[in-house]
Each structure stands twice: as structure tokens, then as C-alpha cells.
Design a protein around this nucleic acid. Structure first.
Lengths: 141, 141
DNA sequence: CAACTTCTTTAGAACCATTCTAATTTGTTG
DNA sequence: CAACAAATTAGAATGGTTCTAAAGAAGTTG
């Protein structure tokens, strides 16, 4: 147990170093929180709250910085589903999402399950960067 | 010419009345601007600017109100592609978008051209509201 | 059309997620 | 450990959006 925590901290440090990010206390601890268990969705606010709950002392500004740096380093993926706030996902692989509009929560749709056909060639001078599929769902009566 | 403008104003008034919205000067003029030519994408700011350029006197607050009312009435569709601002589309039919990230512009992908297969059944208690596909494109070197 | 009710518009304040700033602290390297 | 570069932070600033409360326009009724 104690060992496990230590290991993840070491792993996190290595991961950060590989990504060209200094393994600071805040980054290591946030990485530990983020990549400990399975896939995870979050906003800056929710991560800041979770960190506080886990006893990690980190400012909201650093949470924002970290989310962006992790995203740039390919450790996280940003998910645009809501004009009001930004979501991030620890699952960086090819997958799509359900978005529960009433709750503002995301649910992963694994792997290659969804297939998008008939995508036209983009106009001259443009190349496809990514295809995002969002399935908006509502609580049914 | 004069006649054309008058007609669109009349059409707009009718359309608004049908939607349960009072045909006020602002709403009629904005509708005229929006539904005059073909499909159109906009943000609140851009519509406000276009209105000003067209000599329509309307406050930004009213532009926001109008966009939301038109959307609720099914005259517009909201497109979520950018966490920073909200886009609206006069094309309310079933279609998807290219989003040019460098420019913040949208390009329609007509009709049934795109097909999404393999959508799983949503978790218990949830029903699909809409499926959005966004093809993010970049200016190629 | 007068009187009245209800809905709209509006300027400006308020809001809230996010970014920025400038000063302090921490990590790294020789 | 000294010295420099990079990261963190509190709090201010920003920017899109919403709210507020007051004035104005539209609809209704007699």
C-alpha cells in the first residue's frame, strides 16, 4: 500500500520527465491522482476539488496549467462538449463519448466501436486533425 | 428591391408569430438578416457586428436573447465546437461540420453524407438526443 | 383609441471560467 | 551549495455570457 503510492509517484515522475516536464510536487501528485485508477473525466474545478479532498495542496491556476501541459504532452485529451466549461479525459486513445446534458457528465464509448463513414475530403488547404463524435443523451422520463 | 425587403419582413413576422414570438422590430430585422440568403454560421458577437453593419440597431443583450429564443423555437441550431464561444447555424437540418480551428470558422457538411455506425445503446435511463460529428481541420502547410 | 396588461429591449452591472501578472519558491546543474 | 531556469501562487484582469431593473413597444379590451 505504502509501496504502491511510492511506485506511482516514481512512475509519474518518469512519465513527466519523458514529457519534458519537471516532476514538481504538484505535478507528481496530480498525476498520481489522475492516472491511479482507470479512465477519468474532469474539469479544472472538479480536479481542484478532488485534489483538495485527497490532501493535495495546489492552486487553481496550477491545475489549469497542469491540465494544459498534460494535454500538450499527450497525457490527457481535451473534450469539447459544453460551451460553458472544458472537460479533460485521461483516456487519450481513439474513442468517443456520451454526454449527459442534464448532469454535465461524460461516459466513454470504447475503442473502435463507433465508425464514421462518408467523411468528405476537406476543402483545399485543410487537413483533418481529428473527428469527434458526441452522443448527447438525456435522462428519460 | 423594396418589395423584396418588405416581403422578407412579412415572412419573418409570420415565422416569428408561428413560433410564439412577438415580431418586434429587432427580431424581425435580425430574422431578415439571418434567413435572407443561404445557410449562415454566427456567434453572438459576429451577429451583433453584422447587424450594426446592416444598420440594424440592437443591443448585444437582445442578440443573445434572440439567438436563444430562435434556437428554442427551432429556427436555429447551436453548435458546440469551441469552449470559448457559442456558434449558431441557420441550417437546422441533419448535417455535420468541419471546424477550422485556426480561424474559428464552420463549414457545413450537407445532409446525410456522414453516417455514424456502431452507436451503442445508452446506459439505463438515458435516451439519445442528438449525435454531433465535428471534423476538426487545420490549415495545411 | 384609451387604459391596461404583458412582453421586450436595454445599459450597465454581475458572473464565472479561464488567463495573466509579478513576486516567491522549487528543481536542476555544475 | 550557488546560481540560474522553471514552476507555483494569490489575486487581478479578461471576455463571453447572463442578469437586473427600468423604460418602451405590442397586444387586448371596452
Amino acid at each position: 500500500m505504502g509501496k504502491k503510492v511510492r511506485e506511482t509517484a516514481l512512475e509519474a515522475s518518469a512519465k513527466l520527465r519523458e514529457a519534458g516536464l519537471r516532476p514538481t510536487r504538484q505535478r507528481v501528485e496530480l498525476a498520481g491522482l489522475l492516472f491511479a485508477d482507470g479512465d477519468r473525466h474532469m474539469t479544472a474545478e472538479s480536479l481542484h476539488a478532488d485534489a483538495a479532498a485527497a490532501g493535495i495542496q495546489v492552486s487553481l491556476a496550477t491545475v489549469y496549467n497542469t491540465l494544459h501541459q498534460f494535454t500538450e504532452a499527450g497525457l490527457l485529451r481535451q473534450v469539447v462538449v459544453d460551451a460553458a466549461r472544458s472537460y479533460f479525459d485521461t483516456n487519450t486513445g481513439n474513442h468517443q463519448h456520451f454526454f449527459v446534458e442534464d448532469e454535465g457528465t461524460l461516459i466513454d464509448i470504447p475503442g473502435e466501436q463507433i465508425e464514421v463513414a462518408g467523411v468528405p475530403v476537406p476543402p483545399k488547404g485543410l487537413t483533418v486533425d481529428r473527428i469527434d463524435v458526441v452522443i448527447r443523451v438525456k435522462r428519460s422520463a
